[in-house]
Computed example of a mutant assay.
Amino acid sequence: MTDKPTAASTTVRLVAGPTDAGSIDDFELFYARRALGRFRARLGRQGLLDLLAADIDQGNAFLRQSALASNGSFTGGTTELETRGMKAGEFLGWMDKAFADEEVLLAAQPEHYAMVNQTDGSVHVVENIGPHVCSFYLGDWASEAMAWADDVAELLPHDAFPYKKATNLFLADGTIVGRVLIQFGDTQEGFTSNLTVYLPTSCPSDVLDHHLRHFAVEFRNWIVAAAAARD
C-alpha cells in the first residue's frame, strides 16, 4: 500500500521566469516586507498602537505576572552571530545613529511596532515577546546602574569582547520584566555578536527561544543595513 503524500514530501523548484536572482522564498520576503511597510506607513505609529491596544494589555499582563511569579529571578539565553566584512566599532557607530531613526529600527523585524527615544534616555519599545505583543522600555544604555551584568555567567572577557551594552526592560510602572546584555568582539574577518536576553524564570521556554530568533532576525538586518549605508 502506497503512503499518502504529505506537504513535506512535495517540493517546488523555480525553473524559469523572473530575471532577477533569488529563490521563491526571497521573492516572498520582498513582497511581505513591502506590504508590511505600506501598512505601517498608512496606519502610522499611533494607528498601530490603537490597533494593538488589546493585545498590548494582554501582553503586558503576561509580563507583569511572570515577573511577580519569578520574584526577581531571570533565565538567560544567547544568540551568536558571525559577521564578515565589517568590524564591531563600525556597526555600533551606525547603530548609535540608527536609534534616532524609528523607520530604520522598525524595518529590522516584522514584529517591531514602535521604537521611540524618550527624554530620559530610555527607549519605548512595542514588539513581540514570544507570542505576546508588549509595550516596555529599554533603560539608558549609557547608565551605570547595571551592576547585575558584572557577574552574570554570560559576561565575556573584555579583551575579546570590548564592546558591551546592558539594560533592563521595564514596564511603565517600573516593573522590571527582563534584561539585555549585548557584547561584540572583532575577529580577523569581521566581528562576533553575542546577544543575551533574560526573561522571568516563570516564562515558558518557547517564549525565550522565540526572542532568540527575534534577535537573529533584527541584528542580521541591522548589520546588513549598516553595510548598505556605506556603499
Score class of each variant (00 low, 15 high):
Asp25Met: 06
Ala16Leu: 04
Leu52Glu: 03
Arg42Val: 04
Pro18Ile: 00
Ala21Thr: 12
Ala16Tyr: 05
Leu14Met: 14
Thr11Ser: 13
Arg45Ile: 11
Ala35Val: 14
Leu51Tyr: 11
Thr11Val: 13
Ala35Leu: 15
Gly47Lys: 03
Ala35Gly: 04
Leu29Gln: 13
Pro18Ser: 04
Arg33Glu: 10
Leu36Ala: 10
Phe30Gly: 00
Pro18Asp: 06
Val15Trp: 06
Gly22Leu: 12
Asp20Thr: 12
Leu43Lys: 14
Leu29Tyr: 05
Gly37Tyr: 02
Asp50Asn: 12
Arg13Gly: 03
Gly44Thr: 04
Ala32Gln: 07
Gly47Phe: 06
Asp25Pro: 00
Arg34Lys: 14
Arg45Val: 05
Ala35His: 12
Ala16Lys: 11
Arg33Met: 08
Pro18Thr: 11
Phe39Lys: 08
Gly22Glu: 09
Gly47Tyr: 01
Ala16Gly: 11
Ala41Glu: 08
Arg40Glu: 02
Leu14Lys: 15
Gly44Arg: 02
Gly47Met: 04
Arg38Lys: 13
Leu51Val: 02
Leu48Ile: 07
Ala32Ser: 10
Arg42Gln: 03
Gly22Lys: 12
Leu14Asn: 09
Thr10Leu: 13
Arg34Leu: 15
Phe30Val: 09
Leu49Arg: 00
Leu36Arg: 14
Ala16Thr: 10
Arg40Tyr: 00
Gln46Tyr: 06
Phe30Ala: 06
Gly22Cys: 14
Gly44Ser: 10
Ile24Asp: 07
Gly37Leu: 04
Arg34Asp: 07
Phe39Asp: 05
Arg45Gln: 14
Arg40Ser: 00
Arg34Val: 07
Gly47Asn: 03
Leu51Ala: 13
Ser23Asn: 02
Arg38Cys: 04
Ala21Asp: 14
Leu29His: 08
Gly44Tyr: 02
Val12Ala: 10
Asp50Gly: 06
Leu48Tyr: 01
Gln46Arg: 14
Arg33His: 14
Thr11Phe: 09
Arg40Ala: 00
Leu51His: 11
Ala35Ile: 11
Arg40Asn: 01
Arg13Glu: 13
Phe30Leu: 12
Val15Phe: 05
Thr19His: 11
Phe39His: 09
Phe27Asp: 06
Phe39Ile: 10
Arg40Phe: 00
Val15Ala: 12
Thr19Phe: 02
Pro18Tyr: 01
Asp50Leu: 07
Ile24Glu: 05
Glu28Ala: 15
Arg38Thr: 14
Gly17Val: 10
Tyr31Ala: 07
Gly37Thr: 01
Tyr31Arg: 07
Arg33Asn: 15
Leu29Cys: 04
Arg38Gln: 11
Ala16His: 09
Arg42Ala: 06
Glu28Met: 13
Arg33Leu: 04
